[in-house]
């Protein structure tokens, strides 16, 4: 190859690096793949507190509500009574509720004790080494992902718009998202942020 051609390719590689590297360098500590609304959510195979393996794929055809939860975070605990009530309300509507605990320091026994005390009746899955949290870009607890019957992400974010950890908000984002999907519509809003606790990663 002639020197001129080599120089041209070196120049292009340099420009590519100069363009792409600064953009990626801006990402925050744990910003992995942030899910996009309308895209399929990655599958998981995670054990619940009794050792039973659950996967997202096994619930294809159902609306799935995934809650990144924490037994220590007051905002997550504050949302629990409302999420549990919502799971019971939709028990016969083909809506599956699953909690996911990705915190490094929380054991299965810790979660069992909390779930029993708090009446958290739907399965809670242990995400060992926060691998699934990384795969879906989860950062906060509580952070909710609502997946439609086709396995596509339909809603992502806050449970509701509460301004305090135990005070119910006046916009019930997750409840509205489930109602919209059951009605054959797209949730609006499809994304909302919430204060909460960071996921304690390994």
């Amino acid at each position: 190859m002639k020197m001129k051609s080599i120089a041209k390719y070196v120049w292009l590689v340099f420009l590519f690096c100069a363009t792409v590297v600064p953009l990626y360098g801006c990402a925050s500590e744990n910003a992995a793949a942030v899910p996009k609304i309308g895209n399929p959510l990655p599958n998981f195979e995670l054990k619940d507190l009794n050792g039973t393996v659950h996967s997202l794929n096994q619930y294809a055809g159902n609306i799935v509500v995934l809650e990144m939860c924490s037994i220590e975070c007051p905002w997550s605990r504050g949302a629990d009574p409302h999420l549990v009530a919502l799971s019971k309300k939709h028990a016969d509507d083909g809506v599956v509720f699953l909690g996911i605990d990705s915190h490094k320091s929380i054991t299965v026994d810790d979660i069992k004790a909390y779930a029993e005390k708090a009446g958290k009746s739907y399965p809670i899955l242990k995400d060992v080494d926060n691998k699934y949290a990384d795969a879906i870009g989860a950062k906060t607890t509580p952070e909710v992902y609502v997946v439609d019957k086709e396995g596509k992400l339909a809603y992502h974010g806050a449970f509701d718009n509460r301004q305090q950890e135990t005070q119910e908000g006046d916009k019930s984002y997750v409840a509205n998202a489930i109602a919209a999907l059951l009605d054959g519509k797209a949730p609006d809003p499809s994304e909302a942020k919430s204060w909460g606790c960071s996921i304690k990663r390994k």
Binding site: S28, K139, T140, T141, A158, K193, W195, G196, C197, S198
Partner: peptide, 8 residues
């Protein structure tokens, strides 16, 4: 673009 996770 704060996520809302504390502390930040």
């Amino acid at each position: 673009e704060i996520s809302g996770a504390l502390p930040a």
